[in-house]
Amino acid sequence: MIEIRDLHKYFGALHVLKGIDLDVEKGEVLSVIGASGSGKSTLLYTINGLEPVQQGRVVVDGVDVHAKGTDLNKLRQRLGMVFQQWNSFPHLTALENVALAPKIVKGKSKAEAREIAAAQLKHVGLGDKLNVYPSALSGGQQQRLAIARALAMEPEYMLFDEATSALDPELVGEVLETMRMLAEEGMTMICVTHEMGFARDVSDRVAFFHQGVMEEIGPPSQIFGDPQSEHTQKFLANAR
């Protein structure tokens, strides 16, 4: 379970998260929507400790992420993350990309790491690309590679930071399909997304962020069917 309490984040003088309170249960799929600059991506970065916070707490399975002495490298193994830019390691094949972290972070044997990697690549539909370098993969394939890379660490949670925003329109579908598959398998997911269809169909809850504040959270039927906040209404009217 992820518990976020009164979370504040500043970039210099810029107040990007203004007191966020949020619980994410095991098995839940939460979509986070809102305009660019509303703080939704920053929220993800504070959950796995890639960004420090100035006030408040994030607790993942009882571990206070921002407490002194927290082993972030260990914690991050529980929190897979997929970014807007897929960031495949260009010097490694697809298989090596996925096998690297299990090998060096988890200390798996080379054979074991490669086995895990092959299984995860098959899982995301790249079973025929094991020995291909990322430069020979499409954006959609590279993003699925990034998902497989994160899954290879056997995380408890997956954080998606606008995973489809940098993709050509015709490649968005395959990545969303993969995310949908993970959701159906019961993965706990927090998806920052601009894909309203995905948020509506796949999520258990949808949170709307506006200027660093979580304006509204609820089941998709409520957020999309009967939004309470004026900002949510305006955002959704423009998003459609």
Partner: peptide, 13 residues
């Protein structure tokens, strides 16, 4: 930096 963030997000030191 995004490449390095991705590496760190996998738990690399």
């Amino acid at each position: 930096p995004p490449m390095r963030r991705a590496a760190r997000s996998l738990g690399m030191s």
